[in-house]
Simulated assay, not measured.
Amino acid sequence: MKRFIIIGLMVLLSSCDIASVANKKINGVSFVASRDSINNTHVTPVINLQANYVAIMPFGFIRNLEHPRITYNSNRQWFGETKEGVQQYVKAFKTQRIRVMIKPQIWVSRGEFTGKIKMNTEDAWTELEETYSGFILDFAKVAEETQTGLFCIGTELETFIDHRPEFWSELISRIRKVYSGKLTYAANWNEYNRTPFWNQLDFIGIDSYFPVSNLKTPSVESCKQGWESYKPQLKIFSENLKKPVLFTEFGYRSVDYAGNQPWESDRRMNAVNLEAQLNATQALFETFWNENWFAGGFIWKWHHKHDSSGGEENFMFTPQNKPVEVLVEDWYTRY
C-alpha cells in the first residue's frame, strides 16, 4: 500500500496546475451486485474513496440477441440484482449519505453485446417492448419508493433504439408518471450522437470507452491528445441540447494498450499494466472534471468486498487496491 501512496503523491503533484474546484460533480462508482446483502463494511470503502454517488445495477437476462423475453427479479439471481436487493443496497448507501442511481441492465447469454439486440419479426419486437417496459417500470417504481435521485432507462441498446424510436419516447413518458427524479440513458461512446430522445431526459449519459491511445503504455499526454478528437464535439452537443454530459461508465483495464479499445473485456488480454490504467484515467480526469458542462461519472467497476478485490495482479477494470484508486480518491476529494 506504501507503493500506492507514493504513486498517488506523484500523480497529485503532476496535476497541481489544474484548478482545484470548478463545480460539484457526480463522483460515482458502479457498484457490482453480489449474492449477499451489504452493510457498513461494504459502504465504508466507497466513502473512503470520497465518492458521493453509486450506480446500483439490477440485471435482466435474455437468451440470445434475437430472443424477446427478459427474465428478471428471479430467485435464481444474486440478491443484489433483485428488487429486494436493490432496495436494501439503496438504504445502506443512503443511510451513509451516498446518493444512488438505479441503472437496470440487460445481460445477453454468453456476454454478447446488448447493442446488437434485434428482433426478426414485428411480433417479437412487440414482445420485447412489453417485457422491457415491465423490467424498467418495475425498477423505476423501486427508485420512486426509495427516493433515489437518478434513474437510467437503459444501457447500450443502440439497435433496439434505432429500430423502435417511438417505443422509447413513449416509455420515457410512462417512466415520468411513476418516477419523479432525474433521468438518463447510458449510450455507448459511438452511439450518443444519434440517440433521439435526449430532449426528454435530464443528462446526456455516455459509457465513455472512447479509444484515445494505441500505445502499449500510454502517457497522460498521449491520452489527452486522443481526447482532442472527441471533447469539442461533446461540448457542442451538450451546449446545443442545454443538458450536461454524464459518463454513466468510465474507466480502463490495468492492461497493456488500455486506451486503445477501452470497452474490451476479453480475459485473454491479461498482461497487467497498472501504469497504463493510471495514466489513461488521469488524462480523463484532467480533460473533463473541470468543465462546467460535464456532470461527472461512475467508474467501472467496484466490488463489495474491497479488501479482496482488484490488487496488483488484477488485469480487469476495477480500481480497487491499485494505484489508480489513490488517483480517483484525489480527484473525487477536489470535487
Rank of each mutant, 00 (worst) to 15 (best):
V245Q: 01
E130V: 08
V326P: 00
F59L: 08
M269Y: 10
N270H: 12
W289F: 15
F93P: 01
G226F: 14
V255D: 01
R176S: 03
L183G: 13
E221K: 08
S208G: 13
G8T: 02
V245W: 02
R3E: 04
V29A: 09
V11F: 10
N279R: 04
G181R: 07
Q277T: 08
F151I: 10
M269R: 15
S254V: 04
F197G: 09
I62Q: 01
A280Y: 12
M1K: 07
K25A: 01
L327S: 03
F210Q: 00
P45A: 11
G85M: 01
V328R: 06
N279D: 12
N199Q: 14
K243S: 14
D202T: 07
Q282T: 11
E312Y: 12
Q261P: 00
Y332H: 03
E228Q: 15
D207E: 11
K25W: 10
G296M: 04
N193A: 12
T71S: 10
C16P: 01
R69D: 12
A55F: 04
N27R: 07
F160P: 02
T155L: 06
N39P: 06
I6K: 15
F250H: 10
W125A: 07
F315A: 13
E166C: 04
A186Q: 02
V32R: 02
F285L: 01
R164A: 01
M57Y: 00
Y209Q: 11
T287M: 11
R110S: 14
E81A: 07
D330K: 08
I161D: 02
Y257R: 05
Y209K: 05
G115K: 10
A19N: 12
A283D: 09
S229E: 09
V54M: 07
V11Y: 06
G226S: 13
I102R: 04
K116M: 08
T159R: 08
P244L: 09
V272F: 05
F247Y: 12
Y132T: 10
K322M: 01
N75C: 07
D162A: 13
L9V: 14
S109D: 11
S213E: 07
I56W: 03
